[in-house]
Design a protein around this nucleic acid. Sequence first.
DNA 1: CCCCCCTCTACCTATTTAGGTAGTATTAAT
DNA 2: ATTAATACTACCTAAATAGGTAGAGGGGGG
Lengths: 212, 212
Amino acid sequence: MIKVVVVEDNDTIRDGLKILIDGTEGYSCIGAYSKCEAMLKVLEKLQPDVLLMDIGLPGMNGIDGIKEAKAVLPDLNILVLTVYEENDLIFDALCAGACGYLVKKTPPSKLLEAIKEATQGGAPMSSHIARKVIDFFQHKNRSASKGANNNLTPREREILSGLVEGNSFKAIADSLFISIETVRFHFRNIYKKLHVHSQSEAVAKAIKEGLI
Amino acid sequence: MIKVVVVEDNDTIRDGLKILIDGTEGYSCIGAYSKCEAMLKVLEKLQPDVLLMDIGLPGMNGIDGIKEAKAVLPDLNILVLTVYEENDLIFDALCAGACGYLVKKTPPSKLLEAIKEATQGGAPMSSHIARKVIDFFQHKNRSASKGANNNLTPREREILSGLVEGNSFKAIADSLFISIETVRFHFRNIYKKLHVHSQSEAVAKAIKEGLI
DNA sequence: CCCCCCTCTACCTATTTAGGTAGTATTAAT
DNA sequence: ATTAATACTACCTAAATAGGTAGAGGGGGG
């Protein structure tokens, strides 16, 4: 029996979810609240398997609710159920501890399946949400490979990497079997291209913009 | 009709996939190769909707194959189909441009569904893979908020931040209304605590470990 | 009350970096 | 064949940084 707790401010939806869950073999809705605060008070007693949460709530917002819930029960599976598809909310929710993210138009059968999946170590996501999540990885890379590293030559990137690893000019020179003067030469060009005037600035920019 | 190209070195599996895809209404396997190189040569002509790729291939590895394929057809939906569940491979594949990641034990019906999902802007993933992906976000946060920033005093973090912003010791001193000697004093302590010996190393460590 | 930690300042020396000028060699493109 | 871009080396000066030593003042806890 999968024990589910629901937090959803819309009475109609909340009641609908409770009826759906309780009405399905193997599922039980052991709590349904309109606010995070109310849920958090009894969370430890309830010990649910899955927490189904709305994000756009009055009072404490859903993201903070997730964090607090995770603080009480670190292994709780939290599913976000929402109308929002904004990237920030998705990532905030995932970072806060959600293990899945469903849009509200998800059909009941899929919702029940998602709840079960969550208890089995899965991460149910609506397909468009999943795409946004994986896009994150590609964007991370895109900015790294095209973004701003463009004007740096391969050799310059190599040398800059050495600095990011924490090596001195001399160490970089030795590892590349070139003169320290050559390293200095490259850094002059790197600094010009990145518009910086010190090692630390260059390292910070290199890491932040994913140049390396 | 969804046009699929398969790359898989195991003849049995490859033939099985081709038969499955061709044998299903609405799907067509317009190419099946045992190596990335062969697929890449004809990719532009084939113009498939989905590329189903193995990762552990002889010759060019799957990750590079994904990158090259994306270079030819940037909007191609690439699904990884593999036995590997190592984190690095998953993330490398996603960064390279895969839009989904399926383990080989995925049943045929799920596989076909995943192919369709990919063409509709989804990101089909086996449930355990999805969990690993979302775990990434949570770990990212955990190490950033708790990780190692502990042993630095508030003042030291403040000063280190200045360095990460790209400021010189003097600039940091001025902005905090303290002497440059004080800044140097703090950096000596910061370096000891972080076990580094230069600005760049400190900045790199600070950013990577999320100290700032 | 005393000790420890944090914060602040100073001086010394050796090393490293920043920025400028100047020149050679190789390769790819015009 | 000339140009542009890249990679390499050298020498110069001024500035910044690393590491050591030394000491003052404040606040919290034993």
